[in-house]
Design a binder for these strands. Sequence first.
DNA 1: CTGAAAGCGCTTACAG
DNA 2: CTGAAAGCGCTTACAG
Lengths: 333, 333
Amino acid sequence: MLDVAKKANVSLSTVSYAISGTRPISEETRKRIFKAMEELNYRPHPLARGLASKHSRILAILFPAIERGLGLTELEFVANAAEAASKSGYHLVLWSAETNDPEELRQLTQQGLVDGVILMEIHKNDRRVNLLRDLDFPFSMIGRYDDDSGEYVDIDFQQTINEIMTYLLGLGHKDIAFFNQSQSSFEAGYGPVVRTKAAFEDFVRKSGINGYTVFCRPSPQSGYEKINTLMEKHPDITAVVSMNERAIPGIMRAAAEHGWKIPGDLSLAAIVSSVKMAEMMVPRLTTMDPPSAELGRMATELLIKSLEGNCDESPHILIPCHLVVGESTGPAA
Amino acid sequence: MLDVAKKANVSLSTVSYAISGTRPISEETRKRIFKAMEELNYRPHPLARGLASKHSRILAILFPAIERGLGLTELEFVANAAEAASKSGYHLVLWSAETNDPEELRQLTQQGLVDGVILMEIHKNDRRVNLLRDLDFPFSMIGRYDDDSGEYVDIDFQQTINEIMTYLLGLGHKDIAFFNQSQSSFEAGYGPVVRTKAAFEDFVRKSGINGYTVFCRPSPQSGYEKINTLMEKHPDITAVVSMNERAIPGIMRAAAEHGWKIPGDLSLAAIVSSVKMAEMMVPRLTTMDPPSAELGRMATELLIKSLEGNCDESPHILIPCHLVVGESTGPAA
DNA sequence: CTGAAAGCGCTTACAG
DNA sequence: CTGAAAGCGCTTACAG
């Protein structure tokens, strides 16, 4: 930087101001400076800048260790968050941490390396959220907190449930099961599980159809067992909606064993499963494709905006999933 | 840090040395210092340390934008690399970049933020590798370069092919097709594609069976078309091995349409597909499960070792995939 | 519109 | 075994 200043015949500080644009520089001077930077192939040093300015321009995304394992959705969050950060001149560090042990998170924030944090897998009364609030540390969420406070972007689960249910209703289905994630994740207050359950039951009540909510561990085996038990008790069910990706092969297996054709005898739809995953099944699954890339990108943009003070006070953004019809759904038998 | 020094009645530098352990400190003094740190809840500032020491303790992993899209394997690389880094006191930043345009990479290295880089999706004559060599910038690879130089950890493709082929041979299969990835990725010299092709053809030659290599784009549709064409020409084929995950549903669909039972009439095995993915299929797929977590972790450890000078000169580590038998393979018809 | 200088919080020769 | 001091490469009041 000193070399640049010398070459451009200005002071060190002028070069700094020219780069940051934090004070007016005459057009001529600026040109000289940028030319010198170019010629010397100068790159500002992020560590020095961070140390002096108290802003590292580094963000962290918290990568939770979750029961059902990491999936394509989480990958999309992270990849797109990194890209969005990079576009705004930020870096993104990956930080894996227990969802319900904020101790690691406290250390991360106290280190002073990162300017802000992106959280995902938000739970009811999430301890990480509470911690960051107490510390007054900047963060944004993919998902939302109980009281709907803070900056977040989330899936519009209500709308997602409504859309898939309306679609199935239109095909004549009147006895529909909803395979949710595990009971324990419901009890832990995991947002998507709680919200889809409420939305499903709400829809059922309003539409007057028969709806059955099923909790299910994230495994084909569990899906297999649950569908068998369920169908025994309620043989009239003609459609299954599943937010439990890994249960689906189990459901398909049970259907095959019983000789139920999909979608002839049983319609099967996923929600919050990617099209890419839906295409891995035979028959190709109808799914409500989640806006994973947008969620990752927007959570990052929100955080950066609030860090830079351009925040229009705690934006709440909800994006619905998008219906992609496959071959696994059809008219009710 | 100054506060700590005062509290412990020592100089600033002594505190620094006590933390880094780069010079002998009397037991007593050290204790006083650590007690003071504890009481003041002191955390060293990584930016300041980085600026002064010229080592940021930040690593980057290059996240390629690849044709077939990001998968579970890449996710495992990244998640485990982050964890391994964290265990050694490093941070991992995610950097997405074109595989064959090293310009972004050059900027990343010149910024001076990161101490080293982890590369994946290594191609023949990889331009990123060439660049990092020219710059003499530290890096490690998941995958290997043509000349087998540099520090890497990779899948032992030869062994992987041998194991699955031996398994199929044991089941009596003598006409086996290998569904590789796309022709274009082969032409681009993408390591796994090149190596598995060679290993497969080698095995075929030595064992005297009939083998058929098929390139296939990463889509069910492409898999469907290729298997149909292939079976028309070679109806004796009784087993398919696929390193092309997304082609598999297409193969299954074709089988169903022709009334070939899996595995009764046709055995189907994946390689380098995770068990988790294999379990998403009905019937559950036999697969050679890749050691993704280990690869991510070891590539990181390799890099850190070489940065800290503990490197036993360019380790080359090969790990085979692990056979997990599912329901999609059986005795030859 | 521009400069001189202090300071961000550490590391590391230099000296004893 | 320990200290005093320079310096890492920037930003930002302070002054003009």
